[in-house]
Design a protein around this nucleic acid. Structure first.
Lengths: 207, 207
DNA sequence: TAGATTGTTAATCGATTAACAATC
DNA sequence: TAGATTGTTAATCGATTAACAATC
């Protein structure tokens, strides 16, 4: 039997499911259904069941899903049941906000290295874990030494491609790019983009 | 003739095209092609031509697209050739970073009102334009008075739904939501989400 | 048992791509 | 003119949905 590749679009929805399950857990709930999840997320119940069916059977007919169980399963599937070290490049306003962000805790990620090219910033502690900002010329070595697989780019657009290149050459396989530019990486490397301007411009058409 | 609705997914790519054109302009280029744009963005040239064809004919056979002309056309189509006032709710670390962000300039958006519920923050100037943080209980009134159509939510997850509700009731039609929770709004209101954890969790599956 | 909800199938719907006539 | 590239068509590909047997 051939294991068919899971569509990217399905994998992309799992973190949304995970987030919803996390809230249900926080509310002290034990059981949910594809219907309830769908209502909360604005997704059809059929789609949720179909998405989950790519990975196994997690529910009980007539009952629904055990929230805690499904949560754990999805965390394993997404490989966020452990902790990924993350290298952050860019210690300006944006990088600072990312380093200060408390939302990574418990979600599978921890920023353990921060880089910049400005002498004034290098050597200072930054973020919730008071990490010492390193010179960006130590980026490759640090990634290699600690076997870091996840990077965040928070540099100006003009520097993003070079940073991505360095990250990839050193072994990074997943890049969250806050720089407002499309970067080119080998197909074995994943990139996700965060650009508030793009988000806003996607809505004004409808106004 | 029926004007068929443009697929959301097509509209969603236009800001990416716009961004690429903006860079080409900055490089001093005058003409580009669907092939070149596609190569830069990792999109097929056919898709770019097809997407644009929903809105009109912007190119010349044998030549390609005049960058400046296409840029202006897309800005008009997306309605970002003017300036949208934006109300930002949440003046914590994240809200501060958004208010400090210089990337909105020239892209069609300007934050003109900032709100929080913490007395310590209300009344202080914030962001690149030194806007005085207002009490969030003035949110609805301000939105109505200035006819603001665009909102950004940068509150804790637990407050996001209530803020969205207030915004929508006061007339906001587009919400950029940084809170890590799916919010429910009428179908006439657009929402875009920015959640770095979701972005990261979409990649770890492949590691 | 009766009611509820899953997992899965098949049909529908929609998006992408390849190809090419038109034409600059 | 010859070469290049658009805009568009039709085919392909993929995603979503409706429906329901299975079963808790």
């Amino acid at each position: 039997m051939v294991r068919r590749a899971i569509p990217d679009i399905v994998v992309g929805r799992l973190p949304i499911y995970l987030r919803a399950l996390s809230f249900l857990l926080a509310e002290g709930r034990q059981i949910t259904s594809s219907q309830e999840l769908g209502d909360r997320l604005g997704i059809s119940s059929a789609q949720i069941r179909k998405d989950l069916s790519h990975f196994g059977e997690f529910g009980k007919q007539g009952t629904g899903y055990d929230i805690s169980f499904l949560y754990d399963q999805l965390r394993q599937i997404l490989k966020v049941d452990g902790m990924w070290e993350v290298a952050l490049v860019g210690a300006g306003n944006l990088g600072q906000a990312i380093a200060d962000y408390g939302g990574f805790a418990g979600k599978g990620f921890v920023i353990t290295a921060i880089f910049d090219n400005e002498p004034a910033k290098i050597g200072s502690p930054m973020g919730i874990d008071n990490i010492i900002v390193q010179n960006v010329n130590e980026l490759a070595e640090t990634i290699r030494k600690r076997d870091i697989k996840v990077g965040i780019i928070a540099t100006p657009a003009q520097d993003a491609q070079a940073v991505a290149r360095t990250m990839v050459d050193a072994g990074v396989k997943a890049i969250l790019n806050y720089a407002p530019i499309t970067i080119t990486v080998p197909s074995s490397v994943r990139v996700q983009y965060i650009d508030p301007v793009v988000g806003l411009q996607r809505m004004t058409y409808y106004l």
